[in-house]
Each structure stands twice: as C-alpha cells, then as structure tokens.
Design a protein around this nucleic acid. Structure first.
Lengths: 217, 217
DNA sequence: AATGAAAGTAGGGATTTCCCCCTTTCGGAA
DNA sequence: TTCCGAAAGGGGGAAATCCCTACTTTCATT
C-alpha cells in the first residue's frame, strides 16, 4: 500500500520533531520533507510534491497564508491542513480563502490528527470543534450587529423596487423606463430615500443598501 | 438534578414519536412539548419555554427559519438545534442567520444527538460533519469563482486610493481634499477607471468594486 | 538619451443629479 | 366623510458628474 506523502511546515524545529514522532505512529503516512518557513516550503515543492501539508500559519518571511495560496495555485491537488496555536479569526478567514482543507489547533489529540488526515485524504474537510465554534460565533455576532442597528426605516414597495434598480447600476432615466414612471418621479422617490436613510447622493444610498442587505451583490 | 427542557418541532407525527423515544434514552432530558409547525411552536412558547428546541426546517405555514428567528428574538436564551433531512445550502445559511446553535441531519447517530445537546446546553455549537463540509465547499467555490473571473485590470496606487474613497461615499471634491489633488485630477482618474472597468458612472464603479472585493463594506 | 507609462492640472460643454416647491389621485384610518 | 400618507407627475435652478482634449512632470526601462 502506498503511504500518504506528508510535508511539515513550521518555524520551530522542536515542534516539527515532536510532530514527526507523533505522525510516525501512523503506519500509513510518510513524511517526505520539512520546511521552516513558507519560502522554504515553496522551494521544496520544486523537487517533492506531497499529498498533504501540515502548515503553520505564523512564520517569518512568507507566512502560511501566502504559502498556501501559492502552493494550491501551482498544485491544486495538494491538501493543506492549517495548524495554529491560538484562535485568530482574521487568520482563520484568510486561510479558508487561501484554500485549506482543514484547520485545527496544534494541541489537538492524536486521534483528531488521524481523523483530519483521513478526511482530507479522501477529499473531505476537517475543522476542530473550537474552529467551528469560532465561525459560528462570528455568524452570531454578524446577526446581532444586524439586529442592533436594525432600526431600519420602512420602505414602500416602490422604494424597494427603485433601490433594487439603483443597486444594479441604472440611472434615473433607465429606472424611469423600467418602472414606467417619469424620470421626475424617480428623482422624487430617490430624494425621499435620501431622507429616510440619511444619505446625500446615489453612491451613498447604494453603499447604505449593500451594508443593510437591501440588495445583493 | 434539573432536567434539560426540550421541545420538538416537526410536521411529521411519526418523526416526533420516533425522536421522543430516542431522546428518552437520555435520563437528563425532559420533553416538555411538541409542535407540528412554526406557528404552533410560537404559541407553545407563551406557556412553556424550553431550553433547547429541535427544529425541523421544512414545515407548512411558518417554517423553521421564521419560527427560529422570532423565537430567538423573544427569548434570546433558547438554543435551537436545526434538523434537516437533506443538505440545502440556502436553508443552511438562512438558519445560521436566524440564530441557531446547531445544525444536523435527522439521520444522525444517537451519540451525535447527545453531543449536540451537551454542547449547545453549555453554550457551544454543534454542526455535523456533512454541514461543515458543505460550508467549506461553499468557501472553496467562492474562492474559485474569485480566481476565475480574476482577469481584473491592473490599478495604479492612485487609482486604488481613489476607488477606496469613492466606496466610502465621498464626492469628487471631497476626494480631492483628502488626496491633496485638484478636483479635475480626481475626475481624470475616475474616467480612467470607468474605461478600465467598463463602467459608465460612479454608481456602477462602486458596484464593480464591491463585487470584485476592491473595497469592503 | 529616449520612449512611454503614470500622475497631475486644466478648460469647456453636455448630461445628470440633487433640491425645493407644487398638483393630482387613491385608498385606508380617524 | 374627512383627512392623511403613498404614489405619481412636474418646473426651475444649482451643483455635481461625465467626457474630451491638451500640456507638464516624473520616473523607470530600453
């Protein structure tokens, strides 16, 4: 049976040593290389291409986010498991956008690492509980923020219709044609909207609409 | 020891019966009520307030999304575990926005339900593996979409600066003040931007910028 | 040294937007 | 039935935006 080829990327030699020992308890994996920062890892890719990469995020020079992005760009089949010591929201988002398959804490249990490797190797994803909670909290906060500022004015059907058209980029004249109204009436609705939303011009109104989810991008 | 008060909401009596049996194997929970649709559940809340709700999503009249939204609004301490038979992305997003604490498939294993109850009861979250994968896939697709349409024009530093200011709602004059440029120069940069981005006016440019993540809301 | 891209400035004119002020119609609430 | 708000339509004028052309400077690459 072919072993799963794995590379470790972390700037602390001690951690790599410990982690290698940890992974050696799995007979089906083979550590084909190590790197102490993102640049070293990208160089390593020129000679050895792993199936799974355990990638630290905080690293000197080229960090885990940038290294992952570039690695995935060159080799779309590489699966990346992001490792972190702490829960940093900004990094979490960036790593997800960079195309990682899994995200877990360094101090996870042995069986969690095993689960992560198997899931990722079979085309799935793995996120440790703490990560999932963090993502969920983020959504909750977003929802709360929406509700708190929610003293949104009440819009009439016409106004909603016109906001939608404005947010598609149409000018007064075009909106008039599409709604079978006179351009002057459209202008009137718009200035009513300016008042209701405390905006000054069309651009402001568009930004307001997007911020308050009145229109979708 | 106080038992955890639970309510089941599902339009299929058969499912509720089966699920009640299932939950009865946990000695620490007490099912204080059932409802066959969202409206019935909201009425139930007037007399009995549970700690945890198992909420089906697809229901007649008032669906799970709307019922959850209203329940959380009235009783912010209620924890809702969304139940679904299938993986529907749209519903997933809506439920998350409605404020649910957990999201799992109806055909989950017994120990998964137990895990979900305990996590949620202790202020945490629970999402079954399939749900997490779905969310992750969504992110991946989003990332790919971004990359594919990525034939974005190259913007100069000035242009990026001006796009950012436009997207904050400033007019030509204000942008001129903030950048220490003449208003005419700002206009020039803007019309260059119109050409590069195939847009016709400021509103269009703003929409373009948001769509392509050139500015953040 | 030269070419060209990026940036800055400017004028003039067409077009659009914005801001008051005003009238009519219509349906629901007092 | 009266009254009010929403929707619709409009005029005039100020302001902002858009478009085109033209000139200067700077700076990097050839």
């Amino acid at each position: 049976m072919e072993k799963i080829k794995i590379v470790l990327v972390d700037d602390h030699k001690i951690f790599r040593d410990g982690f290698r020992l940890l992974l050696q308890s799995f007979s089906y994996v083979e550590i084909i290389g190590e790197a102490s920062n993102g640049q070293e890892f990208l160089d390593l890719l020129k000679t050895k291409v792993p199936e799974i990469v355990f990638m630290d995020i905080n690293m000197p020079q080229v960090d885990g986010v940038e290294a992952s992005r570039r690695a995935v760009e060159q080799f779309p089949d590489i699966k990346i498991i992001a490792l972190t010591t702490f829960l940093d929201e900004d990094y979490l988002e960036k790593m997800l956008m960079a195309g990682v398959e899994a995200y877990m804490l360094k101090n996870s249990e042995l069986d969690e690492f095993e689960k992560a490797i198997m899931k990722v190797y079979n085309g799935g994803n793995y996120f440790s509980d703490e990560i999932v909670s963090l993502l969920s909290d983020k959504l909750h906060r977003f929802r709360k923020r929406k509700k708190e500022q929610a003293v949104l004015p009440v819009f009439t059907e016409r106004e909603k219709e016109i906001i939608a058209l404005i947010c598609k980029g149409y000018g007064n004249k075009e909106i008039a044609e599409k709604t079978f109204l006179s351009p002057k009436t459209v202008e009137k609705h718009k200035s009513n909207l300016f008042q209701k939303t405390n905006t000054f011009n069309t651009v402001n109104l568009v930004i307001y609409a997007f911020k308050n989810q009145l229109a979708n991008l």
